[in-house]
């Protein structure tokens, strides 16, 4: 269970990215977070695994406090939280398998991973993760030789290799074309359903949010302005979250708007 209790994040320079956020996510939920850029979506996810330190309040992941945790404690918390990124964040000049093995870093002694002496069971784990996203064929290919969609699948496999309890996805499809976007979202949905991994996804395409989400969270200027079942969401809800009317740019495909 994830619990945000009155969490605020103020960046150096005084920008307030989150203001007094309260939020509880139960195990196995699939939560989609929407909001304009700058509304605090990325900060919310990064505060959860401590990449961005919360300046106020308390964040607990399965009863473990994230705010103010020591470096070692943070690494332990992060080892159970997978994260995938808008820009994939792969190391281009090494193999797909090495990229996925990075998900095992917290489980392998540093001297072994540093020299690339990964234990056989961790290699096996990485291979299984690649199989789950259907890209094991490319295990020994250099990451830079893959297409965008394939790279994001490697990103998902890397997170899966962590054996995570929680999966954070920060705009996972913003850099992808519509068809690939749906495939990646389907992957995330399947992983959530098959493995019961709690999933939080930032999206800026509202139609994708409606299509894949179960629970919707709306952020506006760092504050929680909507939290509810996706079934209750109407165009007015989105307008309320965005503070403006919905345009075509907020949708992945214009056709879905009409159905």
């Amino acid at each position: 269970m994830i619990r945000f209790d009155n969490v605020s994040v103020t960046y150096r320079g005084g920008v307030k990215a989150l203001r007094g956020l309260d939020l509880t996510v139960e195990e196995g939920e699939f939560v989609v977070i929407v909001g304009l850029s700058g509304a605090g979506k990325s900060t919310l996810l990064r505060a959860l695994n401590g990449l961005v330190p919360a300046t106020e309040g308390s964040i607990t992941v399965n009863e473990t406090e994230v705010v103010g945790a020591s470096a070692a404690k943070l690494r332990e918390i992060r080892s159970k939280i997978g994260m995938i990124f808008q820009t994939f964040n792969l190391v281009h000049r090494t193999t797909v398998l090495n990229n996925v093995l990075m998900g095992r870093l917290s489980a392998v002694p540093a001297w072994r991973s540093t020299f690339g002496l990964w234990p056989e069971k961790d290699r096996e784990k990485a291979m299984q993760s690649l199989e789950r996203v259907g890209i094991v064929e490319k295990a020994y290919v250099r990451a830079s030789d893959l297409s965008g969609g394939q790279q994001q699948r490697v990103g998902i496999a890397r997170a899966l290799a962590q054996d995570p309890l929680i999966m954070l996805a920060d705009e996972p499809v913003a850099a992808l074309d519509p068809i690939t976007s749906r495939q990646v979202m389907t992957d995330l949905q399947r992983i959530n359903e098959d493995l019961g991994i709690t999933t939080l996804v930032n999206l800026h395409f509202l139609d994708l949010a409606r299509e894949y989400g179960k629970r919707l969270i709306g952020l506006r200027e760092g504050e929680l302005v909507f939290d509810g079942d996706i079934a209750d969401v109407t165009d007015e809800t989105f307008q309320q979250i965005y503070g403006r009317s919905i345009t075509e740019e907020d949708l992945l495909t214009t056709e879905t708007r009409n159905d």
Partner: peptide, 13 residues
Amino acid sequence: MTEISNSRPVRPR
């Protein structure tokens, strides 16, 4: 992705 067959490749020497 459908165009990729999902079988493990041999580790290149």
